[in-house]
Design a protein around this nucleic acid. Structure first.
Length: 281
DNA sequence: AGTGTCGCCTGAATGC
DNA sequence: TGCATTCAGGCGACAC
């Protein structure tokens, strides 16, 4: 699924082709995805795109008219760019198609339909229901060990769930939560409020490290992830613990015959992978 | 308020 | 072989 690094990679791809272009056609192939397509989506026709930004896992397409198209890819969403001259052949689950004034076609395909598209006034975006409650971006200065300790103070919730909480920090999904905790050598079960300042420092560094590495790799997390240029990519990414149940963790020095290797358990209805040796409570 | 659970959805993987 | 079941998960809604 697209997590922050994948969304950032897509943002960079879109930034290459969208700014300066005008949207000339909007084709809705169904009434909506997780939420209905807004009536105001029609009003973006004829508008010029001024920039592409990202907040958490949301893509933000800025329009000259003062509005922003909000796109979330959910679990299985893809954006594909068909440059002028590349024939657009409709595929199953192509839900929204935007045509630009230079012949480029942007397609939002999402089999599982957990994604969403909305339109909002750019100036009021921070008050929008998708954004008003969000915590800091993990790669920005506000996300520090001191902030994390203070935010988690008194919480009994498991650390893994805490760092996936959008109000704590955005963009850390199920895969990177497991990877970051492994990198930091912290137990996913630790009551979040018990995180020491020293370990918070490690955790912040590890979250930033794994996200940056994934962005550098060009986004990576799902097998069916497709880059915005339509090319398949990065399926070969190797996780340290994610998806490695029973196997040796990255750089493993454990006696896996005894430990059973990487453990897979469920927290909050989601799979958590961890090394019982390096991430002991 | 903090915490836990559910449901949305399809397709791949697994089970019998 | 083929059908049925399970699993994957972001995130809002809801229950306690």
């Amino acid at each position: 699924m697209p997590e922050l690094p994948e969304v950032e990679t897509i943002r960079r791809g879109l930034e290459e082709v969208l700014p300066g272009r005008k949207i000339v056609k909007i084709q809705k192939n169904r009434h909506g995805l997780r939420i209905p397509f807004p009536a105001s989506l029609e009003a973006v026709r004829g508008q010029k795109i001024t920039g592409i930004e990202r907040r958490a896992k949301y893509l933000l397409i800025r329009l000259a008219g003062g509005q922003t198209i909000i796109i979330h890819l959910g679990m299985s969403g893809r954006l594909m760019i068909h440059a002028k001259g590349q024939k657009y052949v409709p595929e199953k689950h192509d839900h929204l198609v935007l045509a630009l004034d230079n012949g480029t076609v942007i397609v939002f395909n999402d089999p599982r339909r957990f994604g969403l598209v909305d339109v909002a006034d750019t100036e009021k975006l921070n008050k929008h229901r998708f954004f008003s409650h969000l915590g800091p971006e993990p790669l920005e200065r506000k996300f520090t060990a001191a902030y994390l300790c203070e935010k988690l103070h008194g919480k009994k919730i498991a650390l893994k769930l805490a760092i996936m909480d959008q109000t704590v920090v955005v963009g850390v999904g199920n895969i990177y939560a497991s990877e970051a905790l492994f990198d930091a050598g912290l137990s996913p079960f630790l009551p979040a409020g018990q995180l020491t300042p020293a370990d918070a420092k490690k955790l912040v560094a590890s979250i930033q490290k794994v996200l940056k590495a994934a962005i550098k790799a060009g986004g990576s997390s799902l097998r069916d992830y497709v880059q915005t240029d339509g090319e398949l990519g990065y399926f070969q990414h190797h996780w340290a613990v994610y998806g490695k149940k029973g196997q040796k963790c990255k750089g493993c020095t454990c006696n896996t015959a005894k430990t059973g290797g990487v453990q897979q358990i469920t927290q909050g209805g989601r799979s958590t992978f961890y090394c019982p040796v390096k991430q002991a409570v």
